Computed example of a mutant assay.
Amino acid sequence: MPSLFDPIDLSPALQLSNRILMAPLTRGRATKDAVPTDLQRDYYAQRAGAGLIISEATGISREGLGWPYAPGLWSDAQVEGWKPVVGAVHEAGGKIVAQLWHMGRIAPTGVSGMEAVSASAVRNDALGHSYGGKEPYPTPRAASMDDIKRIIGDYAAAARNAIAAGFDGVQIHGANGYLIDQFLRNGTNRRDDEYGGPIDNRLRFMSEVVEAVVAEVGIDRTGIRLSPVGESQGCNDSDNHALFTAAAARLEQLKMPWIELREPGPQSTFRATDEPPVSPSIRTVYSGMLVLNSDYDDNNAQDTLDVGIADAISFGRPFIANPDLPERLRSGAALNVWDVKTFYSQGREGYTDYPELAEQVAG
C-alpha cells in the first residue's frame, strides 16, 4: 500500500508529490472587500510542502460570503489579489486549488449586506460571526428558480476566475452545512419541486453546480468536499448514510476525479458525532480518489491508507501551527500546538509566525 509520502495523481491536472493535503481553513486575513493580502501570500507559501493546498473557503459572491475578512473570487480586484498568493505557492514548489463557497442561510446580514438565500426558509437558531461580534442568523428566503440559475452561474464565474488567478483547480464546497449541503439534507430542504423531496431530487442542485463548474474549467481541475456524518451547523438529514452514498454514486456518474470527505468521530476536536463513517459505503460506489479529513495524525492517517478506503489524507488544524507538517510527519518530530485565540484574528501572530522544524533545531 502507498505511504503518505508517495506521489498521487488526483487527476491528470493534479499530480501531487505526496498524499498529505492541507485542508481548507478559514482564517480571516483578507480585506473587507474580500481581497487577499500579502499575509496570505506568505502563509500559503510557507505550507507549499503539502501535496496539495486546498484554499480557505472563498466566496463566489457577496450574497454567499458571510464570514468577516474572508476572501472572494467574484471581482477583478480579488483575482488580482490571489495572483501573488498562488504565484508564491508555485514558486515554492506547491500546488493549490480554490475552494468555492456559498454560505446560504448562515451568511449573516452584517457581513454580506444582503438577504440570505437557502433551499428553504429554515432558519439556523445559532449565532454567526459578524464584524461587530456575534449576531443571529437571518431567516433565509427559499431560492426561486431564478435564484438557483443565478447562483449556479456564480459558481461557474468563480471557477473561471480561479483559473484566471492561476489556481491549479477548484474544489466545490458541498460540506459543513453551507448552501449545497442545505439542498442535500432534508432537515433544511423542505421543497416540493424538482430540487426537493426524494434524494434524487435533492442531488440536483449539487449536480448542476458540478456540471456548470466543469463546463468552465474541465473535470480534471474540479473536486468537491462533502461532510457525510452528523449534524453540521444545524444542517442534518434523516438518513445521512443513504443520502451521501447516493451523492457519491452521482459524482461517479459525473466522473468527479476526487472527493474530500470530512468525517469526524466521537472525540473530534470540531463538531464531534457518534454516527459511523459513510466512507466505506462511498468506496463501494465511487472509483475516484477519496481524501479523508478530521483529526488524523501520522499513525492513523497511514493506517487509513493501508486499509484501502482513502487514497490521501487532508490535515486541517495541524497545518495551522506546523507550516512544514509533511517534514515533521516524515521525521517523527513533535508538532507545534495551535493557538485557538488567533485562528480568526487579522494579524501575523498565530498565522505566519509558527516556527519550522529547522528553526527549532538551529535554536
Rank of each mutant, 00 (worst) to 15 (best):
G132H: 12
S331W: 00
C235G: 00
S118L: 06
L325E: 04
A272M: 07
G196N: 09
D239G: 13
G288W: 02
D200T: 14
N300P: 07
V229A: 11
S314M: 06
E275L: 10
G49T: 14
A312W: 03
R19N: 06
I180S: 11
S3W: 07
L329N: 12
F315Q: 04
Q267L: 12
W67Y: 15
A143P: 03
L292H: 04
Y195K: 10
E349Y: 06
V111S: 02
I163K: 13
L179Q: 11
M1A: 15
I151P: 10
F315S: 03
R160E: 14
L243V: 14
L335P: 04
E260F: 02
A249G: 12
L52F: 05
G128V: 06
M206D: 10
S11F: 07
D33T: 15
N300D: 10
L14N: 08
D42E: 15
V97F: 01
A247V: 14
I259V: 11
V97Q: 01
I309S: 00
S17N: 09
I199Y: 00
P68L: 05
L4T: 10
S120N: 02
G51V: 07
F315W: 01
G87V: 06
A45N: 08
Q40T: 10
V285S: 12
R41Q: 10
N336K: 08
G316I: 08
Q253W: 00
A23H: 05
G288M: 02
A45E: 04
T31E: 03
L73Q: 00
Q171E: 15
V285W: 08
A165H: 06
P140C: 11
A272H: 12
E231I: 13
N189K: 08
R19A: 07
I163F: 09
D353W: 12
R123K: 15
F270S: 02
Q253P: 00
R41M: 01
G169E: 06
E63G: 03
I8T: 09
T31C: 07
I219M: 04
L329G: 11
E63D: 05
M145K: 14
L21A: 04
F315R: 05
A162I: 01
A334P: 07
K32I: 09
S3V: 08
N300I: 09
V89R: 05
G133L: 08
A23W: 04
Q302N: 08
M256R: 08
N161G: 05
A92F: 01
R19P: 06
I106K: 07
I259E: 03
F270H: 02
N189Q: 05
G72T: 07
Y155I: 08
S345G: 14
G153V: 05
A301M: 02
K32G: 14
Q302P: 01
E349F: 05
L325F: 10
Y296N: 01
L52V: 07
D353V: 11
L65D: 00
G113Q: 03
